[in-house]
Design a protein around this nucleic acid. Structure first.
Lengths: 149, 149
DNA sequence: CTAATTTCTCAAGTTAACTTGAGATCAAGG
DNA sequence: CCTTGATCTCAAGTTAACTTGAGAAATTAG
C-alpha cells in the first residue's frame, strides 16, 4: 500500500481519536476517505490535520455540524492551499473571538462580584440589572452577547 | 404569598430558563427550593442569580456536574456573602482562564496556518510537529493543554 | 497456510441535558 | 362555586456524539 495513505487504525493512532469516532465523523461528512477494492478506508495524510482540527474545535465547544460547515470549505482529496485555509479561518476566528469575549465577560463579572460581595440586593449593580438578565427580554443574555444560532 | 418568594413560573420568566429545565436542575442538585404545604416549589430571589449563573456557565461549555460542584460551595437558603462568592469564584476562574488560553492558542494557530499557507508538508512547522499532535503521546494535545478531567 | 489482527456494516446501547405527555391537584379571577 | 391556568409527579421521548456488539471478510505475522 502507498506510504502516503493511512488506514483508519493509523489515523486513529496519529490523532488519538477512536476508530469508531472517525467512522462516525465520516457519517457526518467531516472526512471522506477513499476506499480500497475490498472496501477498506484509506486516508490522506492531510486528514490527520482535519481530524485533529475537528477534535480541538469540538472540545472547545463547537458542535460538529458547525465544524462540518467550516470544514466543508476545505477541499477533500488534496492538500489545502493558503487560500483554502484563509477561507475556513475567517469564519472560525469570529466564533472563537466571540467565545473568548463571552468567557472574559463572565470572568470579569465574577471578579466584580467578589469585589462587591453581593452583600446588598439594593446596591449590587449586577443584582439590580434585571436580576442578571439583559435589557431586552428575559434570560441571562447580557453576559453572553447574542446567542450563536 | 410572601413577596420575596418566587414560584417556578416566576423564576422561569426572570431567568428565561424553562420550567422543565429548572425542575431538572433541582434533580441535579443545582437548586433546592422550599415547598408549600401543597408541595409547590418556592424559590428565593437569590435563586434567580443561581439559575442565571448555571445557564451562562453551561452555555460557555461547562458540564452541569462541574457547575454543581462549584455551586455546592454556595449556601442554599440564604444570600451568599462575599466570602461565599470568593470561594466559588476561585475554582471557576481557573477553568475559565484555561478555556480562554485554549481558544487563544487555537486562534493563533489558525492565524499561523494562514501565514504559512500549509503549502508544503516538509516546511510547515505545524504539519511536521507530529502531525499536529503533542510531544508526548498521540492526540491533538499541544493545542489544548492538559485535558480537564 | 494458519492464526491473529484489523476492518467492514448495521443495529442498538449510552450519557448529557432536557422536553413532552398523562393524569391529577392547586390557586386565582369572575 | 366554577373554570382556567399553574403546578405536581413520573415515565418516556429527543438530540448530540459516540461506543459496543455481532457476524463476516480482508490483511498481516510467523
Amino acid at each position: 500500500m502507498p506510504a502516503h495513505l493511512l488506514t483508519i487504525g493509523d489515523l486513529s493512532a496519529r490523532t488519538g481519536v477512536a476508530v469508531s469516532a472517525i467512522r462516525f465523523y465520516e457519517e457526518r461528512g467531516l472526512v471522506t476517505p477513499h476506499r480500497t477494492a475490498a472496501g477498506h478506508r484509506r486516508y490522506l495524510r492531510s486528514d490527520i490535520r482535519r481530524i485533529s482540527f475537528v477534535k480541538i474545535a469540538q472540545e472547545l465547544g463547537f458542535p460538529l455540524d458547525r465544524i462540518a460547515t467550516q470544514l466543508a470549505r476545505l477541499p477533500q482529496n488534496r492538500t489545502p492551499t493558503r487560500a483554502d485555509w484563509t477561507r475556513i479561518s475567517r469564519g472560525f476566528r469570529e466564533d472563537i473571538d466571540e467565545r473568548i469575549a463571552g468567557l472574559t465577560r463572565l470572568r470579569d463579572t465574577l471578579d466584580g462580584c467578589i469585589g462587591c460581595g453581593c452583600l446588598s440586593l439594593k446596591r449590587c449593580a449586577l443584582y439590580n440589572k434585571r436580576d442578571w438578565a439583559g435589557e431586552d427580554g428575559p434570560g441571562p443574555r447580557f453576559l453572553m452577547g447574542e446567542r450563536r444560532t
